[in-house]
Design a protein around this nucleic acid. Structure first.
Lengths: 335, 335
DNA sequence: CTACGGAAGGCAAGCGCTTGTCGCAATGTG
DNA sequence: CACATTGCGACAAGCGCTTGCCTTCCGTAG
């Protein structure tokens, strides 16, 4: 059915190996011959059979990326960046959404590992011990997780969180809340502790709520807790929760940015489009994805054992209109 | 390195073919032998090499789905559904985001077609003529596109749109707007004409704006046009645009649901969480994805030529709080 | 007792491509 | 002019698995 390498070779009176080489190591073949081959290839419509190629070469020309939830707007930019970067090197990307089931993640990773040349894990929830078990997978890169002995791209949430707290402090807030993200979230642990120490340093009172799932709905729930407390500003684990808080608080009659300041994390596209626009900590997800791909491509192109690569990226606060000077509600808690 | 079929066969003093059969056609092998084989397989940690298997069998055990933009909340549920359904049959899913570049879509499809057993195209933008060119790809299924001679899953937007118009009419609106989606969007054409005829039938005045990209930002732009017009309600091409409209209109001082009714399409998770919650036409994306997978699996399991399969799904309006009785702004246009 | 049919498993031929090795001609060197 | 070098391609051996066909063996029927 399909045209094979051999067909092309026969048509030209050459051997398959020559044609093969003309395509994959052009410099090893005479320029004229190469020219003839390319023409014939074109004209016969020959397309290499990836599978056969992989069988012998061991290369799959495919990368996989595992994310917890593509519905969370934080991930699509990463995925797109990874796809774009990989495509430039002729690689296909296999995406796997584990639907926040951390348990499946390890299996999924092992499974995909056999079908790809490299694996990018974006797994904020999974226990470190489990992830560490994947270290032996060749060309695996963890995004936003520190895994000893493996390559990883770290996004330092600390900076951004400190900036967020300082921003609120500068505006005059003294009593703020942090809405914790999912229970086992590694990012949450980082964010939480950065906020705690910043608050302590600046002498601010910090209340904590949660954990909450990284979903808008959870934010709505969080909002009522915030409403009942005496804080004048709240930092949410991520934009989704922040957005949920804003919606619910607005519904209950507070004006965001006036009666209550809200800060999200991720700087997702939504944050600029909510009303009011959401002050958020920019997390360079796309850059992290690109860095991960680059690590893999680099390793792929250099044979032998590889030293784990580590890349660190920074976060910073983007101030929009959901934060302003505190404007305490009269007396205390209203209905 | 890895344990191969032959290794297992040797360890047992059997031939590779027997072991192979024991694994893929268990009934063709003696129960006892099968038992022994399974034990050894387990104990040696043998895992079939997918690539080698694919080379001979032609099966890839992989499905691909091509979507225009995973950042659009309409798609993740489809993708998740497809992944889940495929996983139940032991199939992996390859996801491709073409970033709204309709042109790449055809290439991408051709490319992926060779690496998978089936292809699901969710391509609202691409010209029908182009899509039709992909008809020859075996086991291709189009979602939300009618492509003659191919299998497709159609989501009948008409019903939902008519319900939306009737809903507004019942509330007392007589002067409404439709915000067109992307220029070449097939869905948009359907939605638009359904609305036009419903409005005509009910004697309502319809203004149209757009085309707009399916992004929140575009909705903000649309909002200003809406603001300047005399309509009391607006139906947007999708939730994203509707959300953008709501945000911007709120910013300009209108109260959504009172000064302006807004209806979206897709019933994405966001619509229930915006403030106010967004009345939206529910589009069964996940169901469509599942249907598409089922068509493919069905065809995969029956050899030979296949009749194109057609599945039709319906849409319906979900009323929330962004729509209410009209409440015309004083006089005409304010600043 | 021979013949035949079916079940179980072995044999071997690939699937389409890559790649190490080798032959051969053309070129360069002393 | 004999020799070593180099560049181009051909040969052939697989990669790990599937599958059509064949052999062997046993049970049953004629």
């Amino acid at each position: 059915m399909a045209v094979t390498l051999t067909d092309v070779a026969n048509a030209l009176g050459l051997s398959a190996s020559t044609v093969s080489r003309a395509l994959s190591m052009p410099e090893k073949v005479n320029a004229q011959t190469r020219e003839r081959i390319q023409q014939t290839v074109h004209q016969m419509g020959y397309v290499p059979n990836q599978v056969a190629r992989s069988l012998t070469s061991g290369r799959m020309d495919t990368l996989a990326i595992i994310v917890p939830d593509i519905a969370n707007p934080f991930f699509p930019p990463i995925i797109k960046a990874v796809q774009a970067r990989a495509a430039r090197r002729g690689m296909t990307v296999l995406l796997s959404d584990v639907d926040e089931h951390a348990v499946d993640e390890i299996d999924r990773a092992r499974n995909l590992a056999k079908r790809v040349d490299g694996l990018i894990m974006v797994s904020p929830r999974t226990a470190s011990a489990h992830l560490a078990g994947l270290r032996d997978i060749p060309n695996i890169v963890f995004v936003n997780r520190e895994v000893e002995g493996a390559s990883f791209v770290l996004i330092d949430d600390g900076d951004g969180m400190v900036q967020a707290v300082e921003h609120l402090h500068a505006l005059g807030h003294r009593n703020i809340a942090y809405l914790n993200g999912p229970k086992r979230s590694w990012s949450n642990a980082l964010r939480q502790s950065a906020i705690e120490s910043a608050c302590a340093r600046l002498g601010m009172t910090l209340s904590e709520f949660g954990p909450f799932e990284a979903q808008i709905q959870a934010g709505a729930r969080a909002a009522d807790l915030v409403y009942a407390s005496a804080v004048t500003a709240v930092i949410a684990y991520d934009d989704l929760i922040a957005l949920g808080v804003m919606a619910r608080l607005t519904e209950r009659g507070l004006r965001i940015g006036r009666d209550m300041s809200v800060i999200g994390v991720d700087d997702s596209p939504m944050s600029g489009m909510a009303y009011p626009t959401l002050t958020s900590v920019h997390v360079p997800g796309a850059e992290a994805g690109v860095a991960a791909v680059d690590i893999i491509l680099e390793q792929l192109s250099t044979p032998g054992k590889h030293e784990p690569q580590i890349v660190e990226l920074e976060t910073h606060l983007i101030v929009r209109s959901s934060t302003s000077v505190p404007h305490p509600r009269d007396g205390s808690v209203a209905v």
